[in-house]
Structures are given as structure tokens and as C-alpha cells.
Amino acid sequence: MADAPPLEIHDLTVAYHKKPVLWGVDLVVPPGKLVGIVGPNGAGKSTLIKAAMGLLPVSSGWVKVFGESVAKNFRRVGYVPQRESVDWDFPVSVMDVVLMGRYGKLGLLKRPTKDDHDKARECLDKVKMLPYANRQISNLSGGQQQRVFLARALAQESELYFMDEPFAGVDAATESAIIALLHELRAAGKTLLVVHHDLPTARNYFDMLLLLNMRVVAFGPTEEVFNYETLQKTYGGRLTILSEVAEAVRVKG
């Protein structure tokens, strides 16, 4: 059990309305790595992490988290959904949202204790959002909303994290705060899978990259995988992206 990898995916196929969006994904993620998932729009990046977490029905294949099904091991998994996936006008405060991260540890009918509140405050402090604890969530900027989601993920105290585009639409200060936090989590031995949109920064941010376009194009340490051939294979003939790739490779060389 102790040796089971944080995430193991075998022959995973996922379809929406009988149209496959992910084909035969095989993946073994080693512990303590910061893994970036990159690929063009519609490549199935979000689908992959949702399917891995059991949020979507799969057509075939299986997913194991620390050697068990995710339903059994949900306490060891943390999740940061896309910011747009929730209604930010919802009648809750920043504190309420972060406390939700503690719900998995509480049983049925139990209320968050003082310890849970302390933990939530500590997590808010880590993302520098403690002064906003009592704010209604609709009064936050995009970057602040993302930090609240990260604080909630921290409060989950998981070992494996799935993050869906945490860098989307945030300011530069938040982006560097997030990346510092991710490095801190990795240093604590956590495994992180992060869907990322921006190729040039992907090279600097992640230990390993998963290049995805309906299938796994390449998966490995960033310096091995991040090259013109694999990126071209991932992004196909998309011209604007290709020039971005060329630029990214040039910067590397």
C-alpha cells in the first residue's frame, strides 16, 4: 500500500454523448511531483482530472488513487475546480467556502469545530486572504477568488491535488503567490496535477508535463518532453500556437 503511486490510470476512455473525448489514457504519476497538464482547447484536460476524480462516468479503463478506488480514498484527494464553475453570487462568506474544505473530515451531522475554524484561518493566511475572511464572495476579484479556492484545497489537507486552470485570469501577484504555494506543497511531499494553458510558463513551473490531445502525446520530466516535436504533435497545425511553441523552444535553447 505504501508503495502504491498517488495516481495510476489504465486505458481510460471517456465519451460525451457517445463521442470520445479521451482515448486509452495510461498514466502513472510518481509521488511528490508537480505535474502540468497541457494541450489545446478540447484536448480533454479538464475531462481527464474530472474522470480521475470519479466526477464523470468512464467508458472503459480504471483509475486508482494510492492503490485504491477514488471513492474509497476521497480523503486523500483535494480539488480546485475551474473558477467559473461556481456561482460567485452564492450567499456565503470567504470563511464559509474555506470551511467546506474541512467537510470531508467531518462526519454526517457534525458541524465544523473551533479547530476547523483555526485551520481555515491558517490556510487563508497562507494565501494572504485572512483580512477578507468575512467578505461575501461576490466582492472579490478573480485573483482573490482563485486564492480562496486554493485556501479551501489547503484546508482539505490532502496528499494528491487536482487543480483545473488555477492560473486562468489571475493577476501577476496571484500567479506568483500560487506557484510559491504549489512549490511549498510539493516540498511537503504532496503530488499535484495542474491543468495549465500557457505554454511558455509551463516549462518553468512544472517538474513533469503531460501533453494531452485526446490521447497522451507525451508524459515525462519537463526537460525531456518539452521540445518542438512533441509540442507540434500535441497542438497539430494550429498556427498561432505553433509560433508560440517556436518562441517557447527558442527561449529554452
Binding site: 484527494v77 483535494g78 452564492f90 467546506m100
Partner: peptide
Amino acid sequence: SFDPALAVSLGI
């Protein structure tokens, strides 16, 4: 109600 996907990951 707020975040059904998170609920699933919390075992709810």
C-alpha cells in the same frame, strides 16, 4: 448546491 464537484471529492 455551491460546488457539486467538490462535494463528490469530499465524499458527499
